[in-house]
Nucleic acid binder design. Structure first.
Lengths: 200, 200
DNA sequence: GCCGTATGTTGCTGTTGTCAACATCTGGCG
DNA sequence: CGCCAGATGTTGACAACAGCAACATACGGC
């Protein structure tokens, strides 16, 4: 019988849901040591499992990161949809997406950083799809605004979408990289004002 | 004396300018394998030097990256200053900075990625200073615009600076991460139009 | 009750970051 | 000119890591 004093008593040989547990452990590890400090063996140790067990669920370290990225994109799209659901005006919907975008980044910094650091080539097709879905959501919102107010200043819908996306994305990156003093966004109000200013 | 980057087949025991050579080799390695693929030993091998030689110039791998980041911030500030020098109108100066910002990121993707990925805590004070200088340049340009047109909509100068900074920064990140199809920015004209749209 | 398969373990190889001890060169000082 | 101190480069070592292979165990269908 295994030593009964372990934090996870290791009652069973099989873990039960190792994949999920590894993803959660990886996020904690990312929070503590950043992407460079992440190691599969450390994740395995945190979960109380041998150093090669993760390979039954992730073919490589990069694919673990890709899975985290995919999860993040799914959450981001869900957050964006939820935020837009409360708005009717196209412009208001777009701004709601931008606010949700930055709020997501601040709430899940590890996910966000992995989402935009992992090399896309290494991603699964499924992960690629959820990422594209999150962007498609924004492109549609931008297109709706363009349709509502025919400025004709920006003809290309994709260009307009990228241009708008740049704003919350850049702000989120600057916040996460510590380029903005924390006291400038330590309350939801301050953060919302900052996002509002960035969205323009 | 041959220039340091000449193919010296290890004529001398000492390299001559190993520090510079290592920085250059690291940038090439970053281009080929990304930050995750960078290794000090590989840099040493590229330069034709033993695996521990880099430690005479960089106390750790992170400090090598910090040095690259510092170099990048210095270049970025120089590019921004040069771009603004040709403009008199405050708004035009600010837009010139934004254009230069994205052009720098596209021209030096490895530097740019390191600049905004390396943990700031690991940076030398000198590197930190050049980074702050690049941001200060932008804050001054934003303040000049605010002073010229008293909209009073955005009272805080720092908030306005961060808000404006978000735009070129986000666009640069999206371009470098491959989130925008390359054919959308494969000519200077297309790129300038994209930046113009993002700056708003 | 039995067996195929999914899951977890142990052990190995090659690479890396980092340190310590040693070797070599360069510049200044007599 | 000769010599020594410090700067620079080398060799060897250690621990941690990614990833692979062979083996062990448990679950689920028959």
């Amino acid at each position: 019988m295994p030593p009964p004093s372990a934090p996870t008593p290791k009652a069973t040989y099989h873990h039960g849901d190792l994949r999920t547990a590894l993803l959660e452990a990886a996020v904690v590890a990312l929070r503590e040591g950043g992407i460079a400090g992440l190691s599969l063996r450390d994740c395995a140790r945190r979960v109380g499992v041998s150093h090669a067990a993760p390979y039954r669920h992730f073919a490589s370290k990069d694919l673990l990161l890709a899975a985290i990225a995919g999860q993040g994109f799914a959450w981001l799209a869900a957050a964006g949809r939820a935020a837009m659901a409360g708005q009717r005006d196209p412009q208001a919907r777009l701004d709601a997406y931008g606010q949700a975008y930055v709020r997501f980044a601040v709430a899940h910094p590890e996910h966000f950083r992995v989402m935009f650091t992992a090399q896309i080539a290494d991603c699964t097709e499924a992960d690629q799809e959820v990422a594209d879905a999150a962007f498609g959501l924004l492109r549609d919102a931008v297109a709706a605004v363009q349709a509502a107010s025919p400025d004709a200043a920006i003809p290309d819908a994709d260009t307009a979408a990228v241009a708008y996306w740049s704003r919350p994305h850049g702000l989120a990156m600057l916040l996460l990289d510590g380029r903005v003093p924390p006291e400038a966004w330590d309350t939801p109000q301050k953060l919302a004002a900052l996002v509002h200013a960035a969205l323009g």
